[in-house]
Simulated scan of single mutants.
Amino acid sequence: MAVTQVESRTARRAARKKPPRRGVGRRIAAGAAGIVLAAAAVYAQQNFSMSFEQRTSYLTYKGRIGETVETKRFTVKALSVTAAHAVDTTDYSNKVSKVATSNLFLLIDVSATSAREPFKLSKLSPPVLLTADGRRYQPTDKVNDALTLFNKYIQPGFWSSGLLVFEVPEDAVPGADLVFIPPVSPLVSDNYAPEAQIDLGLSGAAAGRLISQAEDHHSLVSESR
Score class of each variant (00 low, 15 high):
13 R>S: 05
14 A>S: 13
15 A>M: 13
15 A>H: 13
15 A>K: 14
15 A>V: 08
16 R>L: 12
17 K>R: 15
17 K>C: 10
19 P>F: 09
21 R>E: 05
21 R>Q: 07
23 G>I: 00
25 G>E: 06
26 R>I: 01
26 R>N: 04
26 R>K: 09
27 R>P: 00
30 A>P: 00
32 A>T: 09
34 G>W: 00
34 G>K: 05
35 I>S: 11
35 I>H: 06
36 V>P: 01
37 L>E: 08
37 L>P: 05
38 A>E: 03
38 A>T: 10
40 A>F: 10
41 A>P: 01
46 Q>P: 03
46 Q>G: 11
46 Q>W: 12
48 F>M: 13
52 F>H: 11
53 E>L: 10
53 E>C: 05
53 E>V: 11
53 E>Q: 13
54 Q>A: 12
55 R>I: 11
55 R>D: 08
56 T>D: 09
59 L>I: 06
60 T>V: 15
60 T>K: 11
63 G>R: 08
68 T>Y: 09
70 E>D: 15
71 T>G: 04
72 K>D: 15
72 K>R: 14
72 K>M: 12
72 K>E: 15
73 R>C: 05
73 R>I: 05
74 F>W: 05
76 V>E: 01
76 V>T: 12
78 A>D: 04
80 S>E: 13
85 H>D: 09
85 H>C: 04
86 A>W: 00
87 V>H: 00
87 V>I: 07
88 D>V: 01
90 T>K: 09
91 D>V: 07
92 Y>R: 13
93 S>N: 14
94 N>S: 14
98 K>W: 03
104 L>D: 07
106 L>F: 02
107 L>Q: 04
107 L>I: 14
108 I>C: 05
109 D>H: 06
110 V>M: 10
110 V>S: 05
111 S>P: 08
111 S>L: 08
112 A>S: 14
113 T>N: 07
115 A>G: 06
117 E>N: 14
118 P>E: 10
119 F>W: 09
119 F>T: 01
120 K>A: 08
120 K>P: 01
124 L>A: 13
125 S>C: 06
125 S>I: 06
126 P>E: 04
128 V>E: 04
129 L>F: 08
129 L>S: 00
133 D>M: 04
134 G>R: 01
134 G>K: 02
136 R>E: 07
138 Q>Y: 04
138 Q>D: 07
139 P>R: 02
139 P>A: 03
142 K>D: 09
144 N>D: 13
144 N>W: 03
144 N>G: 02
